[in-house]
Design a protein around this nucleic acid. Structure first.
Ligand SMILES: [Mn+2]
Ligand SMILES: [Mn+2]
Ligand SMILES: [Zn+2]
Ligand SMILES: [Zn+2]
Lengths: 142, 142
DNA sequence: AACTTACTTGAGACTCAATCTCAATTAAGT
DNA sequence: ACTTAATTGAGATTGAGTCTCAAGTAAGTT
């Protein structure tokens, strides 16, 4: 994967060393399109025989998020989920309160209105959190 | 305050007793329009000489939130803020990442689009979180 | 008014995600 | 190979929030 070049450059730029652990954590997060928590990533690595400590998982994710290689998602249940940003454009989330399913959406209209709201209040917009909670089609049947 | 009637009815409806502690916590949250965390509410009560335990603060807030007398706000920094809902209509929040200032906004267009997004994915919308993070006018000067 | 009983309270133990500590290890420049 | 500062891992610590349980109390009963 040529993206590893970019990863190495990020660490270089930050004055950090390029280690096996850091690369492995990045690969694990990029191995799926799911929204996984740190504990899940930690245990999966352990199972796959390339264990790193919890501390290193958290520390590495911090760097990846800071450099926009990974996105952190807070759905209000007390733990962050992380998702890969390879080929991913910006989107927000629709969360099923019954089964936990997460669906991604993008609404240009909303994106524009957000800029407008910020402008109206003299704010320079940096980021936003927009999450819709409801019951998905399947869960409605139960 | 006649709103206390409503408070008493809520506890009655839930089969809970009406106690001094519960009333005091409700009053404290309704004494300002700020967005305060549980610890702040707990310590303010302690200072005002009408101390209740932390456990009671949390337990009471839970009931108030469940009954829409108080709104819980999660801005992603690890602790919930609570705001009174007296005379408050629905709104979302604009948060300054520098000074922590919280400004309220309502954008009907966005509210409608949210319903549309949910419909498009077959979801029954229950609630949403919409927070804009940026730098406020004052903080931009520094 | 005293009695009964189930609900509530408070102090502190506990949980759990996340962060910190520090000795041992290792990346990477010379 | 040598040097040295960054990194790692195990486990301790933090902090918001929850739980436990003995003591206290609201409110109905006699
Ligand atoms: Mn996503
Ligand atoms: Mn508000
Ligand atoms: Zn569902
Ligand atoms: Zn500000």
């Amino acid at each position: 994967m040529e993206k590893i070049q970019e990863l190495q450059e990020i660490f270089l730029k930050e004055g950090l060393r390029y280690t096996k652990q850091r690369e492995t954590i990045w690969q694990e997060i990029n191995s799926s399109t799911e929204h996984r928590d740190a504990e899940d990533i930690y245990f999966t690595l352990k199972t796959r025989g390339v264990a790193t400590s919890r501390a290193t998982v958290y520390r590495t994710i911090e760097v990846l998020v800071r450099n926009n290689l990974v996105r952190a998602l807070n759905i209000g249940d007390g733990r962050y989920r992380y998702e890969n940003k390879l080929d991913q454009t910006h989107h927000d989330h629709l969360v099923c309160t019954e089964c936990g399913k997460i669906i991604e959406f993008l609404n240009e209209n909303v994106e524009q209105q957000q800029e407008q709201v910020a402008r109206d209040h003299g704010f320079t917009l940096v980021r936003h959190i927009h999450q819709l909670f409801g019951v998905c089609e399947e869960c409605q049947k139960n």
